[in-house]
Design a protein around this nucleic acid. Structure first.
Length: 171
DNA sequence: CGGCTTTGACCAGCGC
DNA sequence: GCGCTGGTCAAAGCCG
């Protein structure tokens, strides 16, 4: 582990907020259709104690979801749009609540207060990097998580949460 | 010894 | 109807 990673790891275990530079937290435009929009709204309604913001998922981040568009207009977000363009056609069916975050991080397993168990890894077409699949280890918790690195900026990690936790936390 | 990660195979959905 | 891609499962191995 190099200095950067060490420093980052320290930040996670010590105080995530200082090390985890949530530079580009956003909701992908492709997923921002009616279903996702309502899903986000539903999230805030169903989980009032977690509505603070992404901190519900990333315990170290204090950034808010207030203006995803302002940051998503940057080139990095355009990448996600381009890559998703091929696979995201119309998802107005059994789409579950999905929330995507893009973080700049050396590690892909961000300490968000929950315990995750990896159950799969897959090479995806639009990215040279593999995509990892995680499930929440909590009993009966249906939450899944998808983690992949940005195609153009491997220093960025795209994390997609699906569903909501039945429990407050693992710790 | 228990839990988790890894990896390949299998299955389902969608597009052509 | 076929092929492709994404997502999940299950067995084996590894680590704490």
């Amino acid at each position: 582990m190099n200095d950067a990673e060490t420093n980052l790891a320290r930040s996670f275990s010590d105080d995530t907020h200082s090390g985890l530079d949530l530079q580009d937290l956003y909701l992908s435009d492709e997923w921002m259709d009616d279903d996702l929009a309502s899903a986000v709204s539903g999230m805030h309604q169903s989980y009032p104690h977690q509505t603070s913001d992404a901190a519900a998922f990333f315990s170290g981040s204090s950034s808010s979801l207030g203006h995803p568009e302002s940051s998503s207009t940057n080139g990095s977000a355009a990448t996600a749009t381009a890559s998703a363009e091929n696979q995201v056609k119309k998802e107005n069916k059994k789409v579950k609540e999905r929330v995507a975050f893009k973080t700049q991080s050396e590690v892909e397993v961000l300490e968000d207060g929950f315990k995750w168990r990896k159950y799969g890894k897959k090479m995806v077409k639009n990215s040279p990097n593999p995509r990892n699949y995680y499930k929440c280890s909590a009993d009966g918790c249906p939450v899944k998580k998808r983690v992949e690195r940005d195609r153009d900026d491997p220093s960025f990690v795209i994390t997609t949460y699906e569903g909501f936790h039945n429990h407050s936390s693992m710790n």
